[in-house]
Nucleic acid binder design. Sequence first.
DNA 1: TTTAGCACTCAGGGAATATGAGTGCTAAAT
DNA 2: ATTTAGCACTCATATTCCCTGAGTGCTAAA
Lengths: 354, 354
Amino acid sequence: MELTERKKRILRAIVETYIATAEPVGSKAVAELAGLDVSTATIRNEMADLTELGLLEQPHTSAGRVPSAAGYRLYVNELMDRQQLTIQETQRINDALNLKMEELDRVIDRAGKVLSQLSDYPVFTVAAATHRVTVKRFDLLMVEENAFIAVVMTDNSVVKNKLIHLPDRLSDTQLQLLSAVLNSSFVGLSRDEMEQALDKMETHTAPGAFELISLVVEFAIQILDDQGRQKVRTAGITHLLEHPEYKSLDKAKPLMNYLSEESETSRLPMNLNSGKSMDILIGPENVNDALKDTSVVMASYDIGDNMKGIIGVVGPTRMDYAKVTARLSYFADSLTRMFGKELPAGDPDEQEES
Amino acid sequence: MELTERKKRILRAIVETYIATAEPVGSKAVAELAGLDVSTATIRNEMADLTELGLLEQPHTSAGRVPSAAGYRLYVNELMDRQQLTIQETQRINDALNLKMEELDRVIDRAGKVLSQLSDYPVFTVAAATHRVTVKRFDLLMVEENAFIAVVMTDNSVVKNKLIHLPDRLSDTQLQLLSAVLNSSFVGLSRDEMEQALDKMETHTAPGAFELISLVVEFAIQILDDQGRQKVRTAGITHLLEHPEYKSLDKAKPLMNYLSEESETSRLPMNLNSGKSMDILIGPENVNDALKDTSVVMASYDIGDNMKGIIGVVGPTRMDYAKVTARLSYFADSLTRMFGKELPAGDPDEQEES
DNA sequence: TTTAGCACTCAGGGAATATGAGTGCTAAAT
DNA sequence: ATTTAGCACTCATATTCCCTGAGTGCTAAA
């Protein structure tokens, strides 16, 4: 059976009205909305065909049709119009992102929150380094006799610091010596290499000095760990409750729990290194059980040298794909423009404040 | 009418079984549970009295009794037993809090998450400086010819840094000069005083130099702002859905929205400077409309010199007060012990990593 | 190939009914 | 003066039954 132009128009009408109403769509509604000037009987025949093709489903014999996952897929791939954002919306997005002097994490957080508000679905964000990160330099600042600040800068321009208190007092020269050791022996190493170098150093270093060195190096290791870890954050989880598919708590709870679990090592269906800039997973296309009945639309963006991020929207399969994709891609583009290649390692916003 | 010992026992039995079952409690259940060896008729008479005293309520004529807000209050103040934590629980709490090398914010976050899991209710946390905070010192570290790191340390031992890129190149001596100006003119000032000093300086300083100074000072102002701002974080909001009072979405949504609104300037019912270490607000005792039907149990803890925090649990008035207060006070004590006076400005955990 | 007509299906809503837990009151018992 | 047994009464909730109407598939004519 062939997928004629008319069938496509009917499918599209069904998908769009179902997205809008959340009610199964009958032949009468399609006849009115698809603008095809044929009778409901003809539509019924076509709908029967579409059902046979696996693009539509029938909740029960006497109900209208609902798009299947395959139906949504076809709609998303071929039928969907690209939606335009209103000026208010672009303004809102720009406001949310263009605050200077802010840490990366906060900007991303706010982006998630605003995207969630604009789309009425929960949003998740991730950001992490794509390649290995190393320390570029150590600086030590004396505070008092028994405390100093360790400042660690990585090769992806992240700077973190820590106030370190000591049991004993420390002289300026000792601090300079420490700084020299750190900068000569631990710069340019990956997380694991640092650990090894530290182990090796233990045997042929005075215990007191080693203690000091390891305090700083462990701090550095923690920073590198942190850069590599994919920190998933979510926003707007309660938006789920606005959609009728989650009016029953049995449906809402598992998904809300899943989303709020701050998925430590991102169990979310994303791959930071996939080339695609936008990806849509519809219902059963999600491998993860908790997402079997939901769709995920996500986009990736570049953050400076060595980091990538993903921002994604989660909702029922009956998601307003046109609306979501338009807003999402605007966000991803803005984030890339803001952090990315076009402002090469020279923009104040590109680093974290540690 | 007097509140006899027997009436108290009956009230207590009703409160506790209602907390456990969420169903109105009838005379039969009380007769069995209160251990009073009197007939249900007697209990009924007593319950009628308690209702007249305003300690119990009747959802409808043919239902059992439910505690009123006043009933809970009496229970909390006089009748409630102090609950003991299991070893597993204390272990869990200690594990959550005792991770060294972690930022303050993260420790507090984790505390909220774990408390929420242990209590089955949402948890909120706040932390902020109680007095005015000033900058203690500025350090500037040259990175490249056109970039340097500004390190700002406040008098409450918070250290933050920022990588600042410049349009022009800068010499080492220029940087030292800048550092001298900052340290001589802006140390010890409050947020507002800094702004004023900056304004004043603008008139009699070379524009280029002023530009540079204001970059760093504005960063410092932002830090001070941040210290004073009460950042409210919430955890475990979805736990609400586990309690029958929120099985209807109409009840759950407003409260969930309220809690997830990251209440910018804490609209939550707390006062960082109240002396009390633990505070319980039951139902209508909450001023805020969104919390009219909920109870809030909160405790405050000290963080080093100049900061205080609050951690609180939100739930229906039918909250398991005994359970929650026990866990909450253990948390507050642990946090105080960890950050507080007993480790006076000398423990590595006491500062933020910026 | 399209359309009108028609019998059929079935979820959802509403009314009517049954159930039973719980009450307050009265009168007897302690 | 309290306590208790007995009893009629209340009312939220669950169950059942029936009805309605949107929507279908099929058939036969256009």
